[in-house]
């Protein structure tokens, strides 16, 4: 991981931390039991996004073909 990327990551994590912190100070209108808890969106998103990338990557390993189709 190169320097710039690491820097960007640190900044993003810091912003995320701030947002999670802010989450403790607002009134929640939970739709279901867990989504009203502070920081839910953060961890849920981290997990979902990682899962999405990994699933897609795995699918790509299986189904991705090099080159364009002849009739495209």
């Amino acid at each position: 991981m190169d320097h710039t990327r690491r820097l960007v990551l640190i900044v993003l994590l810091a912003v995320l931390a701030l947002l999670v912190a802010a989450d403790f100070f607002v009134e929640h209108h939970a739709s279901f039991w867990i989504d009203g808890t502070p920081g839910f969106a953060a961890w849920f998103s981290l997990a979902s996004a990682a899962l999405a990338v990994l699933v897609a990557y795995g699918w790509g390993l299986l189904m991705r073909r090099r080159g364009e189709r002849a009739d495209d």
């Binding site: 912003v15 989450d23 839910f40 969106a41 998103s45 996004a49 990994l54």
Partner: peptide
């Protein structure tokens, strides 16, 4: 509303973190 905006921002920033990590 604040909580909703916060919720969405967390969602987006967290996804961004993953993007940087799994680039």
């Amino acid at each position: 509303t604040p909580d909703h905006v916060l919720f969405q921002l967390q969602l987006l920033i967290a996804a961004s973190c993953i993007f940087v990590v799994l680039l």
